[in-house]
């Protein structure tokens, strides 16, 4: 089950906590993986720990040209692209009334617009090959909202809507498009929480703990597999019961 031997996967934000776990899990299942991110040294470190079947393409997802170059570069490196994981994400938290235009723009550009451009580029080859898996990493706050994260919540809710629209368009071509929505996961993004915030959050999670990157990664592996062929347009919530839909 969930064998990805010979499949070609591109993971954005691969040096992040969740992105690294996703890249590792896809690779463990046999996939050829292209790691993308902004930090060359971190990408190289991850690539070295994975061993063979790994490529690196640096990309700055807030830059249009860099985004447009990414899918072609990955397709050249791997001679194809079967699985696109739009994982890269940034936060620029601020109270709504104080939020700067650039805080809004940056988050929308990286979290939503880059995912749009990458999916648009990837789906072309996938249509030709009559096979594809696009997995967008959303967030629980895309469904629940979160004070201080108007921009982030909007970007993640946008991903969910985009996932459904694209899923409907390309379903007949054997391409599935899904979303995985993590709750609070141990990662650099949640390491910045102070003890009090952490305790407050734990109180809202029925499981009583933060999730692990690997627990997101295994959901991605499932949706990337041929076994998940009939699942599309779905948002899979992985949040320890924090919100149930």
């Amino acid at each position: 089950m969930f064998d990805l031997n010979g499949r070609k996967a591109l993971v954005t934000g691969a040096t992040g906590g969740i992105g690294g776990a996703i890249a590792r899990a896809l690779h463990e299942q046999g996939a050829i993986v292209t790691l993308s991110g902004t930090r060359r040294s971190a990408l190289e470190e991850l690539a070295a720990s994975l061993g063979e079947r790994v490529h690196i393409v640096e990309a700055n997802l807030s830059d249009k040209d860099s985004v447009e170059a990414l899918v072609p570069a990955a397709e050249t490196a791997m001679e194809g692209l079967d699985i696109l994981v739009n994982n890269a994400g940034v936060t620029r938290d601020n109270l709504f009334m104080r939020m700067k235009d650039e805080e809004w723009d940056t988050v929308i550009a990286v979290n939503l617009t880059a995912a749009f451009r990458l999916s648009r580029a990837a789906v072309k080859g996938m249509m030709r090959r009559r096979y594809g898996r696009i997995i967008n990493i959303g967030s629980i706050v895309g469904s629940t909202g979160n004070p201080g994260q108007g921009n982030y919540a909007a970007s993640k809710a946008g991903l969910i809507g985009m996932t459904k629209a694209l899923a409907a368009e390309v379903a007949s071509r054997n391409i599935t498009v899904n979303c995985v929505a993590p709750g609070f996961i141990e990662s650099p993004m949640t390491d910045v929480l102070n003890e009090k915030q952490r305790e407050g959050i734990l109180g809202t999670i029925p499981m009583g703990r933060l999730g692990q990157g690997g627990e997101i990664a295994s959901s991605v592996v499932y949706l990337a597999s041929t076994e998940a062929a009939y699942v599309t347009g779905h948002t899979l919530h992985v949040n320890g019961g924090m919100a149930m839909f």
Binding site: K124, M127, R128, E169, V170, R173
Partner: peptide, 9 residues
Amino acid sequence: SLDTVELVM
């Protein structure tokens, strides 16, 4: 409409 895109490709 998707067929027409594919034809162009």
